[in-house]
Nucleic acid binder design. Structure first.
Lengths: 331, 331
DNA sequence: TTGTACGCGTTATCAA
DNA sequence: TTGATAACGCGTACAA
């Protein structure tokens, strides 16, 4: 029925322990028996039982990718999908086993459930996507001493058990805004910030303020909560006043642009993220493009470093200030 | 160190088997000991070891969600993300454990690797997303007698071990095209079909042909391979000739529309899928909206039926012929 | 209703 | 370099 290591051992005329050694590439095995074992493995079509292995070795190559996603706005599903694809590429290369978890799409998920889920599988290393100041579960994981983690987009959470990885949001916002804003106290910049509980919100806000110090324009900050609709409304309210509208996300920038169109006025705008929707609705706006796939990919590699006992670190990935045209997203 | 079932047994003054029975909600346990055991569990913060459980019971609640995705076109990442979110909602409700696999983003993935991956985890039930006629791995899984599967969007693959689930692509295409095409032999319809190796391609093509029989227009079918760029090129070539352009996907419809804009002519268009991008670039086109989240959700429930020994079946989910406006995707 | 004892498939220790 | 053998933590006949 089910082929086990015993069957292989019998077939190859060796002990089970020898088979195990061969399969784990231990050196203390003669070439002759090695071949004999591998032949038997091939012949019997033997497939190791990962549960038995995990139980016996007390090791599991499982890691968790934990997402806090917004399942309302499908236009940005792209971001999480790219995270996932990049991360899975890395787990495949590193022979790690990703357990994907969406903590917010499932009601009644509390820290105990999550902890239980992870520990029952022997998972002690996790990657956190979409953390914010109110995301108690994720913060608990970071604070706990049971898990080591890599946090995406919240460099401030760096500590002895937590590596961080993200682009430099501060300078990203600074650079992209620099493309559109104008110097001088008489110039008005409307900045549509993200949500107050977002860590990147603070970083990006600091970016526009850094530019303000340099360019000395008049800055009005409004929190549009990463909402396109709110950005639209706020732009209708303050767009007339502004010379330039800088947004902390592409979606908000598109909302702002839509408002301007409806108001029939023109203002320079810029976004943040570099999602492909910008190629359709972005009207050649500048944006700060993040490579989400690469971020997911690197996050796994950083986690692997932690698994291998390395110390936590803060990783900064490059961004690109670009304008996405229709031709760029066309396939 | 690690709290096991033995520790709980000791604490509660019962045998390990009793603890096991309590945790599995077996009836043959007195209320008194039940409480004593649960108290001990809570007090010791006991967490079951899923590997040990799987090994001992020879059962695993693991299923696999296998995706064949196109990782070039991020505009439609939304579709797979919605599948995933819906599927995960269901697995959470059913206490199943999803293993997510992207077979095409990882090079050198052959059937043996995949089979090995699945069987090593005791996975015998899988859901297949994105199958097409050339997707050998998935077809092998369907044909093998080792796995039972639910296939999304390929009703034709239905058999004794394979349930299928999808909207009625034929009538979906029929209905949406009906909104825009015009009766009469002198009327010209350009139909931008999908890829020839896609199962839905055939179904949707049959849909437009059904309508042709009824409306008697002149039909020109061109395969745009689900590519926006190809749709754009083909529309430039045949758009002038056509009175109406029907596309087998939203992305192609958007490409066609873009071509028309560049050609500075107007033709009625329709798409298929109902992705949110249509709210931005769709110019009020009609489309056949699929509820991808619901499809993912239902697919898991169907798989659960197979797990519970039910017979395979063909499930058809409803579609909606709508026109997506900007307001619809705005949050 | 409860407990004993064995088996699940693999790994690891230790002796040969 | 190899082979017994004892864990790993849990489930489940079967006996009590």
């Amino acid at each position: 029925m089910l082929v086990t290591i015993k069957d292989v051992a019998k077939k190859a005329n060796v002990a089970t322990s020898t088979v195990s050694k061969v399969l784990k590439n231990y050196s203390s095995v003669s070439e002759a028996t090695r071949i004999r074992v591998l032949d038997a493995v091939a012949e019997l079509n033997y497939i190791p039982n990962s549960a038995a292995s995990a139980l016996s070795s007390k090791k599991s190559n499982q890691i968790a990718l934990i997402f806090n996603i917004n399942d309302q706005r499908q236009s940005i599903d792209e971001i999480n999908m790219q995270y996932i694809i990049g991360a899975f590429k890395a787990t495949s290369e590193l022979n790690l086993n990703p357990e994907t978890i969406f903590i917010n799409t499932i009601k009644d998920y509390n820290y105990h459930d999550l902890r239980r889920l992870l520990l029952s599988k022997g998972i002690k290393f996790v990657i956190l996507f979409g953390v914010n100041k109110k995301q108690k579960l994720m913060l608990d994981i970071i604070d706990s001493n049971e898990f080591k983690s890599v946090v995406v987009d919240a460099s401030i959470l760096f500590n002895e058990t937590t590596s961080t990885i993200s682009v430099d949001h501060l300078n990203g916002q600074y650079e992209v805004a620099k493309k559109v804003v104008i110097k001088g106290k008489d110039k008005h910049v409307l900045y549509l910030a993200g949500k107050e509980d977002g860590y990147v919100t603070d970083e990006r806000l600091a970016g526009i303020k850094k530019l303000q110090k340099e360019y000395d324009f008049t800055l009005r900050v409004e929190y549009a909560d990463f909402s396109e609709a709110k950005a639209l409304r706020l732009t209708k309210k303050y767009g007339e006043w502004a010379d330039v509208i800088a947004s902390a996300s592409d979606l908000m920038a598109i909302g702002a642009m839509q408002a301007l169109i409806e108001m029939d006025i023109y203002r320079k705008c810029c976004g943040f993220d570099g999602i492909s929707l910008m190629g359709y609705a972005g009207k050649n706006m500048y944006t700060c493009k993040q490579d989400f796939k690469e971020i997911g990919y690197r996050a796994v590699y950083e986690l692997n470093n932690l698994i291998n006992g390395e110390k936590t670190k803060q990783v900064s990935l490059p961004f690109k200030v670009i304008s996405i045209r229709y031709e760029d997203v066309l396939f």
